[in-house]
């Protein structure tokens, strides 16, 4: 019993210490962003590796998610004779929830884990330490551009995911199941609200982009510089990002749409 309490205390203390390090790291990263602005080349390179290279997985996943939504939605809606509302259903679920959430999860798996492994290996091979000794701040030079790239890419990737998903839903609903084309788009246009749906969805993906980039970069920077340490850090990035994204999604949804 005593041992248990002792371990619990130790774990609590170490997780608070980690939270402290992570906050310090974040503030250092954010102040470093001002140094990225005059050097857009650093950012462009990272937007390519973080954002552009995630295009394929986001596009393909978006297409399939949209197609599944089209199928399932049609089955349920046709029971009530409301197939024409398929467009609204597909668009609302994508723009409000699935777009930001699923693309954030994919982003954590594709780009987040890559960032953690990259930074962790740079630490393990003394590249970060070497930079410090060359009087170059590794957080400003390495972390800040990557953070900014992740933060900027995420909303764009989520928007792409939603757009492709809607096309997937259209493909199945209109193309294969015979929903009326005009009704599909018209109902969507009439019911999807710019402020309520689209802006809130974008806000969600902005928050997710911030959190996932932060977690991924911090885990890499904080990794124990061995092969095992880097592999654990990469796992933690995916697990912690997924957990944070889903928990935050609930909180944000409650604030935005709920009457709690």
């Amino acid at each position: 019993m005593f041992q248990f309490l002792q371990n619990l205390g130790k774990a609590t203390r170490s997780s608070f210490a980690k939270l402290g390090r992570a906050s310090f790291f974040l503030s250092h990263t954010l102040t470093g962003i001002s140094d990225v602005v005059p050097r857009p080349n650093l950012l462009i390179k990272q937007v390519y590796s973080v954002g552009v290279l995630s295009f394929l997985i986001i596009t393909i996943s978006g297409l399939f998610v949209g197609m599944v939504l089209g199928l399932q939605g049609f089955n349920i809606l046709s029971d009530f004779g409301a197939e024409e509302s398929l467009g609204v259903m597909v668009a609302a679920s994508l723009v409000r929830e699935l777009g930001p959430v699923v693309s954030a999860l994919l982003f954590a798996g594709r780009a987040g884990s890559a960032l953690t492994a990259e930074i962790g290996l740079m630490k393990a091979t003394e590249q970060l330490s070497g930079m410090e000794m060359m009087a170059v701040d590794p957080i400003k030079r390495i972390i800040s551009p990557r953070f900014l790239a992740g933060f900027l890419s995420m909303p764009l990737l989520a928007a792409l995911f939603s757009a492709i998903g809607i096309m997937g839903g259209h493909l199945v609903g209109v193309g294969m199941l015979g929903v009326d084309d005009g009704a599909f788009w018209a109902q969507m246009q009439a019911s999807i609200d710019f402020q309520e749906d689209i802006i809130n969805g974008v806000l969600k993906s902005v928050v997710f982009g911030f959190v996932v980039s932060w977690i991924a970069l911090f885990e890499g920077y904080d990794a124990i510089p061995t092969s095992e340490g880097v592999s654990r850090a990469t796992t933690r990035t995916v697990v912690n990002s997924a957990f944070s994204v889903l928990a935050l999604d609930f909180i944000l949804t409650a604030l935005m749409f709920g009457d709690i």
Binding site: M122, T125, E126, Q127, S129, G130, M131, M133
Partner: peptide, 8 residues
Amino acid sequence: FQSGALLT
């Protein structure tokens, strides 16, 4: 550095 620490 022992490893060289070149930027890879």
